[in-house]
Simulated assay, not measured.
Amino acid sequence: MLNKTLVPQSVAREIQSMIQNGSLKLGEKIPSQREFSQKFGISRASLREALLTLETLGLLKTEAGRGTFVSGGPSSASNHMAPWRYSDSYSVFDVFQTRIMLEGQIASLSAGRLTAIQLDQMERLTRQMEECWAKQDLLANVEADLEFHAIVASACSNVMLRALYQNVREQLTETQRQPIPITDPSRMNASIAEHRRIIVALRANDPAVARLEMETHIRNTARCAGLDP
């Protein structure tokens, strides 16, 4: 049985496939949550999580009083970022600012601690990001990005920082999805190149460069979202 984290991911992937194969067409209103949850055999809470993920990626758009519609994805010039999900608690600016400080320090403390297997996996994930972006598999692109950053965090020598990363991971990872609808190919290519520079610094066991490359990467992602933390 799929756990409560994998269920929304699995359903989001199915809905993305329906959009890609034309079962759900651009501009079409998707079925009601009741109908969709029955179709997939999941709870409405899991369905809502899947729909929110797809909306953040720009594949769906909710219009007040009308429903949820298939959007254009990042290739559509009219697309814009979805509303920030955590606005009741933190601004997206604050989360990006926290990411720069937290993940920069984590990268510094992870240098020299990642195994060859982990570093090779980060290389594979970076290639996966590149390949999935090329075929507009946005879910797989972002999932590879999330796993890349999680591997770095898992090697941090400071147990408290690792725990802090896990405690705020939902908010941190949302900033990795949030800019996708307005990300053009040149920015994605740059992001992938930044990942590779992070790997080089970590392989070289260079804490200062690892920190700098991670901070630069997150700051550039924030700028893509129209922010300058």
Score class of each variant (00 low, 15 high):
224 C>F: 03
174 E>R: 01
5 T>F: 14
64 A>T: 10
126 T>K: 07
135 K>W: 11
213 E>A: 00
110 S>K: 01
176 Q>I: 09
206 D>M: 03
206 D>R: 01
20 Q>M: 05
227 L>S: 02
12 A>F: 08
214 M>Q: 03
203 R>Q: 11
173 T>W: 12
182 I>A: 01
86 Y>V: 02
35 E>C: 03
140 A>G: 12
143 E>F: 13
39 K>L: 15
153 A>S: 12
151 I>F: 13
59 L>M: 14
51 L>N: 13
128 Q>M: 12
98 T>Q: 11
26 L>P: 00
95 V>Y: 03
103 E>G: 02
44 R>N: 13
168 V>C: 08
197 R>L: 10
45 A>Y: 11
33 Q>C: 07
141 N>C: 13
185 P>D: 03
207 P>R: 05
109 L>Y: 02
201 A>N: 08
71 S>R: 15
164 L>I: 06
27 G>H: 05
62 T>N: 13
46 S>G: 00
176 Q>N: 09
35 E>D: 13
46 S>M: 02
189 N>D: 07
115 T>G: 09
8 P>G: 06
56 T>W: 08
84 W>S: 13
58 G>D: 12
19 I>P: 06
21 N>L: 11
213 E>K: 04
11 V>Y: 11
151 I>T: 10
193 A>V: 00
188 M>L: 03
73 G>K: 06
194 E>H: 01
68 T>D: 06
14 E>P: 07
153 A>N: 11
182 I>G: 05
86 Y>F: 15
107 A>N: 10
41 G>W: 04
152 V>S: 06
